[in-house]
Write a protein that binds this DNA or RNA. Structure first.
Lengths: 349, 349
DNA sequence: GTTAGCACTCGGTAAAATCGAGTGCTAACA
DNA sequence: TGTTAGCACTCGATTTTACCGAGTGCTAAC
């Protein structure tokens, strides 16, 4: 699924302390106000003991180096993607508001149910916490082994193949047979399927009986249906929370439309998240991810793991001028809680 | 203000032929242009052999009777909800474009897979067909009987209860036991559960064994987990297609936000659709459904049935000035095809 | 009942005027 | 050499004004 190479964060050259302070001040204020930031407010705001004029000369330099941009002459400065990147890279560990910590704790102490439900509710939680749109991805189970298979007959021709995997996921597949099969035959086929499949993974090839009787045909049909499962499509669940936030945090109908259109395509969302996914909390700003229609967005992703393996991810999507510290902290906190939730004392969905 | 002779408000039925023609012309043009419609364009457009002045007098009457409204003096007229209602009620059977008929046929001849997937893809189809946001609801299965139950153990304490219903749906529930249970015990519990539950419905109470051994405890735990299932929440699937359309067809960020926020809440959507659901294609315009935040929307709903019973619905959501004829035709066509698809020759998900 | 004629209304648009935040530059200063 | 005050200048945003014209309601004639 993940195709593109991730661009490693540029090792930023210089930027002496004062330039860094100024850049940070610009980013912070612009995130807050959504307006271009002028030299005087920076001079006041940050505890630089310098005049606006000095700030201005520094800003010219920052602009030349690509950290800031000017919407037009005689306007304040606005951070570029590169500016945000610097800001994010030099962020000290974000702090999460007490209220939000409380909310997370509360949520995870009360939540219960299957993994699917937990993930779905988590996406709602995340969007409430951050007021951005959230994306929660539960990864595919193609590596899991089969714990149990059951062929259930609906009527003479229609059967349902229900498969339980070791990671707790369950799939069902219709098996439509051209021939009639009795209840007894289906039960026997079910038994044989279990003998064949238990312990194997989906992509493992199994030896199917070549006999021509009803039972063998049922078994063959079932196995082939199971193998036909597209490994990419199935099992990769996507839960999107707070899509209405898109209309709040982006301006411009066209942008809103584009972002919503992307969110509709779950496959795209999955690959986007997986591209960005790194070891800890990862951020893709503006054009850093390859998705042109999302060039005005920033995406924050944190992994969720079980037994050391990444089994999913939580993500947040907002404008490039999003509240990075809080949102990154929230993503990290939730990803931690989720990891503990699935790995730990509780049921494993 | 000059007081005129009061004419008692006409009961809905009235509207002589000419008024009806004028109203229809206004509705059609306003749906097309989104602009207030003036008397002269109506006089031209509709094949009335009358002058704009006459149209104007009629419009005054239509306004007095509540079918039309004026955004402000010296602007054209705009249909009210009542106006749209009249239009819809007096619509002759809508005709569907050939291209769209083709698209539907194509879709249903190729689509396959479980009901869930079909419904999901249908929602995408609908939104493509109509360029509005679509809602597809698959109704709950609480009335179905249980065909098969399987208790699978993940490890000593975690088990998974997988239930197959006669309508082809499958549910899973985690069963977390405080005590250890062996593979053999779980298998036996599974067997007993099948004996107990096959053929019953979810809300039927079953006699559970009162013994204190591991197997009996597993059985009791499983049955209670199954009964704990909220009958409203489970099984009622909602698929929303083309939510990005919201940003296209509504104007005003606030409206977009509100509509998206509603769509996020699946329960609300289900109850909205079920409220509107009638025998054939039903329409709710503006404030006709009780949802205040959707007062600028119209919703079109058509039922999907299996064996004479309603098992779901397809819906379309757009602004009150939506293209009723086409959209109603599309909803009807798709609902028909779906009904046939599930009832007929194909697999039944 | 219908229509032409007409004065009137009022939102929308465009041109003009104004404002002011913010800039870049220069010259003086530590 | 780096910093700063001073200053002229820029240019988007806002307000003001003027104006157009689509569309109306009314009236008087057909």
């Amino acid at each position: 699924m993940a195709r593109r190479v991730k661009t490693p964060p540029q090792p930023h050259s210089g930027l002496d302390a004062r330039k860094a302070t100024i850049l940070e001040a610009v980013v912070v204020e612009h995130i807050d106000t959504a307006q271009p930031v002028g030299s005087s407010s920076v001079a006041h705001n940050a505890d630089l003991a310098v005049s606006p004029a000095t700030v201005r000369t520094e800003m010219v330099a920052l602009e030349r180096e690509g950290y800031l941009a000017q919407p037009h002459t005689s306007a304040g400065r606005v951070p570029t993607d590169k500016g945000y990147r610097y800001f994010v890279d030099h962020l000290k560990a974000g702090e999460l508001g007490l209220a939000q910590q409380q909310q997370i704790k509360e949520f995870f102490s009360h939540v219960r149910g299957e993994m699917e439900e937990v993930l779905e509710q988590t996406s709602t939680l995340l969007s409430h916490l951050t007021s951005y749109t959230s994306v929660v991805v539960g990864s595919a189970h193609s590596r899991s082994t089969i714990l149990n298979v059951q062929l259930v007959n609906l009527d003479a021709h229609h059967h349902l193949l229900v498969t339980v995997f070791s990671d707790g996921t369950v799939t069902k597949h219709s098996v439509l047979a051209a021939f009639e099969a009795s209840h007894v035959e289906v039960t026997e086929a079910s038994r044989q399927l279990n003998a064949l499949l238990i312990g194997t993974t989906l992509d493992a090839v199994v030896q199917v009986p070549s006999r021509a009787d009803t039972i063998a045909k049922l078994v063959r049909e079932s196995v082939s249906v199971l193998h036909a499962e597209s490994p990419t499509l199935e099992g990769e669940q996507v839960y999107i929370g707070g899509s209405s936030r898109v209309a709040e945090v982006f301006d411009g109908v066209e942008t809103v439309r584009k972002v919503l259109a992307i969110l509709e395509q779950e496959l795209l969302v999955v690959s986007l998240v997986e591209d960005i996914l790194g070891k800890g909390v990862s951020v893709a700003i503006g054009s850093e991810h390859g998705f042109e229609p999302l060039s005005s967005c920033a995406v924050i992703v944190a992994p969720v793991s079980l037994d050391g393996e990444t089994i999913g991810a939580v993500g947040l999507l907002g404008p490039t001028r999003m509240k990075y510290p809080e949102v990154m902290a929230a993503a990290e906190a939730v990803s931690h809680h989720l990891t503990r939730h699935f790995g730990g004392e509780d049921e494993r969905g």
